[in-house]
Every structure is written in C-alpha cells, then in structure tokens.
Design a protein around this nucleic acid. Structure first.
Lengths: 261, 261
DNA sequence: GCACCGAATTTAAGCGGATAAATATGATTA
DNA sequence: TAATCATATTTATCCGCTTAAATTCGGTGC
C-alpha cells in the first residue's frame, strides 16, 4: 500500500461515484449493527426492501448478490425464504485470499516458513484449553492414522486426517487471527498435497503419527514447553518431507485456478 | 465458454441447484485461464455476454457484480468501457477476512501474539533484498516520523507512517503469504489505533523511530541476526505500549462494522 | 494553432413488470 | 399413519426500455 494511495483514500477524494447497489450494501450493513441483528435473523424480503429503499428490483437484487458473495447472507426461496444473516465462514474469508495468492506461485517453502513459527505458537496457546471432547476427537484422529492403509484412497484419507489434527487444534485456539491463519495454511497445504501423487510416503505418515501421539501426551500433562518443542520439531520434519516430495515431482502452480472446493 | 441449460444436472448429484449467475461466474473464471487472459484484458461487453451465454441481462449483471465483489474485474462505462480483468488486490483479499474477524472481538494481544513472531521473520526475509529505492523510501519515512508534530493531525499522520514502515518491508518480502499476513495485521492495528485518541504517546513514537533507525542501519550492514533481534525487541516494546494504551481507554470492538477504508 | 466547450456516441446503470422455479405448509388420500 | 398432492409464498430469471456516465470529436473563440 503506497503512501500516496493512503493519502488519497483518507482524504475522501473518492473520484468514483458509488453504485446504488453498493449504497444498499452499506445501508444493510449499518442496519445490521444498528438493529443488533444476529446470524440467523432474516432481512426484509425482496419486495419490502424495494419499498424500504425505494430502488428497483434489479438494483436490490444486485446488492443482495453482493452480500451473498461476501458471505454475509444466504438466500433461500420458498415460503419463509429470503435473505438470512450468516456468520461469515472461514471458507468465505479465505476464498478471495486464495484468489489473491493464486497469482503468486507459492511453493512448500513459503507455507512452511509460516507453519514453522505459527504452529508452535498455536500449539502452546491451546495448552490447558482442551476439553475431554477435544481429546476424544484428537485420539480418534490419531487412531485413524495408525491403521495400515490397504489402498490408495485410504492413504489419501489418512494424509487428510493428519492435516485435520492441526485444524482441530486451531479450532480450540483462543486467538481468532492465529486460528484462521493456521487453518488457512492447512488448506493451502492440502491443495498442494492433493496434487502430488501419494508415492511411498509411508515413513512420513509414521513420523506424523508419532509426533501427534507425543503431542497428545504432552497436552495431557499440560507441558507447554514440551508442546512447543515437539510442534517445532514436527514442522521442521514435515518441511523436509515436503521438500523431498517436491524434488520427486516438479509440481509448481499449487493452487487451483477456480479456488473452489 | 459454452454454457448449456443442463450444466447443473451434469456431474453433480448436488441437491442444490446452482444459480445461473454463479454458473456464469464459473464459466468466466474458466474462460480466463483457458484463454490465458491477463489483468487489463477486457471481457466481452454486456450485450455480447448476453448473446454469448444466452442468459438475460439481469442474470449477466448479477454475475458481473459477483466478479466485481470478488475483485476479479472492474467495470467502467463509456466507449471502450466494460468489464476489465484485475489483479486481485490486497484490499479485496482482506475485506472478507476483516468481516470474518469482526465478530470475534479482537484486541491488541491477539494481534501482537502474531506480530511478535511474524515481523522478525519478515524482517530477516528482506535482508539483502532492499534496493536503493527501498532505502530511500524507508529513510524518508523515518525522517517524517522524526519531525516534531505541531498538531494532532500531524501526530496521527506520523503514527500511520510508523505502520507504513512495516508495510514497506512487507512489500519487499519474497514470501507472498508472509507478506500478506503482515500487511493484514498492520491494517488491523491501524483500525485499532485510529480509534484511540492519540494521547500523549510521545515516547512511544520516539521508541519507534529509534528502532526503525537501528533497523535501517542493520539492513545496510545486511546483519540478519541483528535485524531479527531488533525487530523482536521492537515488537515486545510496541506491545507494551499498546497494553498501556488499552489500559487508559477501555476500547473493545476494534474493527469497523463497515469494514471499509 | 490551441485551449475550451458541447453534442453525439458508446456503454453500463437502473427500472418495473411478467413468468418460472423452488419450497414449506397444509389438505387429501391410500 | 404415511405418503402424496395442491397451493401459497418467495426468490430466480427474463425482457425491453429509460437514464446516466464516460469518451470522442468536431466546432468555436481567442
């Protein structure tokens, strides 16, 4: 962000006239906070909105489309249908970011440079925050990964599950920004891994399971130092495996153009 | 680009029928990659798109709106107007993320937990990557912050400039994900700081300038270890100031509801 | 010549009403 | 009772037209 641009946007030298549909979007957003609307609440329906704002149907519909794309509302047809407020989901928040990064040709190194510092930070932040339900799910996950895979599909499922372990930790993280970033990195990594043939990365899986098991034990003891040490080592190890993988397959262009899952 | 009516019934056992406008969005995305379109290239204009797809104007317009919201195109009127492909901007990528985090009640601690690990990482990653132009802009920035502020407006400008220092470093970062995340954190922080009255944070500004100056010197020497050490200390120091600030003003709800800048 | 103004042109923006599709609800029937 | 159908409600899509904005270009005055 260049300073000149900053100066411009700050001084309200907005040259472009705002489109009416964008005005509606702004108004609706204001209305949401003014009326203390919650996710699940319904917006006035199309006809009412048209009367309320005094704009035409097409314009209101464009505005609703914009809100829908932003993930703020979801729209249903039929009786009792209409636009319902939604909690902006992780997926909605990360899609544009993926589009943005799509043009920047990522590779494993970029992702692991961040994972190496963020995952240990995340790991420590959930020490003492795990409920019995969390432990149950995490242990089930590890059990799934311990089984001997009989076919290629099972192997891929296991590789996905290994990432899911980290996503579960992220869900327990009290810092929403850190949580989002780790989940996002996991998603990037998954797209990357999916494209690579699961060659013989047996020992990789075994190493992962081993780290995950040790991490769980450390969580039980609430041993923050050990959690940090283990996760840091786990990341360094995982990055090495990734490099090995990348050496075998010269895959660049990790992200899907459509950015859809 | 050849959409047909049965596009939805094709491979999808999806219960929900996709809206036509979303079909168009998908088709356009595919068309972009298939035709190797670049930012700056023009899409067929409205009328042509209507004929091409065989859908009505409103539907096509909704699709264009969706693409516009996603930051993929910008639309102009007048001769030679129409939808132009755009590079997805940082702002477009971060807006939904800000919407997402808006409901999660962030505070300074959440942001600094990340800044403390990410900024040093970023700082080191740009060692040896700074051009003379970079140095010039960075030094101009430090000079601006060194001046004695004469009024409240200037003081705010300086506080903004202090953040801009970090944004400039982020722009030089070779890792796009790391770069984005640091810029995003800066933006979050700015919204936070803007809302707080710039009380007497004179010594805060002085400490910042001092760190920035030392960092520049270390960059000149390409002393990576010192850069890391300085930036880490800078972040710890800045967090302390932030806590002080937050103690004075009990400000929660940091993010603007509109999420617009 | 040159700057300025304004009409013509091109293109998106906005309008409103008609018809189709989806879905929840209540009525009907086996 | 359970499955099915009818119907009412609400969004989805279509159409053709009017309005507004941005650009081009020719003319006018200096």
């Amino acid at each position: 962000m260049k300073p000149t641009q900053d100066a411009m946007t700050f001084g309200h030298t907005r040259a472009k006239r705002q489109k009416l549909s964008d005005v509606i979007v702004e108004d609706v957003k204001r209305w949401i906070v003014a009326e203390r609307k919650q996710p699940g609440d319904r917006l006035p329906n199309e006809k009412e909105l048209i009367e309320l704002f005094g704009y035409s149907k097409s314009t209101v519909r464009e505005a609703l489309k914009a809100l829908e794309v932003r993930g703020l509302v979801s729209i249903r047809t039929g009786p009792g249908g209409g636009a319902y407020l939604q909690q902006v989901s992780v997926d909605h928040a990360s899609e544009p970011l993926r589009n943005f990064l799509h043009f920047h040709h990522l590779d494993g190194h970029h992702i692991y440079q961040l994972r190496k510092v963020l995952e240990p930070e995340l790991a420590v932040s959930v020490v003492g925050k795990l409920t019995p339900e969390h432990f149950e799910r995490l242990e089930a996950n590890v059990r799934l990964c311990t089984l001997e895979p009989t076919n290629e599909d099972e192997l891929r499922t296991q590789r996905e599950a290994e990432l899911a372990f980290h996503t579960m930790l992220a869900e327990a993280c009290p810092n929403p920004v850190l949580s989002f970033m780790c989940r996002f990195l996991n998603d990037l990594l998954r797209d990357l891994v999916v494209y690579k043939k699961a060659l013989d990365h047996h020992h990789f899986g075994e190493a992962n399971v081993d780290y995950h098991t040790q991490l769980l034990a450390a969580y039980r003891r609430e041993d923050a130092d050990e959690v940090r040490r283990l996760m840091a080592e786990h990341m360094v190890d995982a990055e090495a495996h990734m490099h090995e993988m990348e050496a075998h397959i010269g895959a660049k262009h990790l992200l899907l153009p459509s950015g859809q899952r």
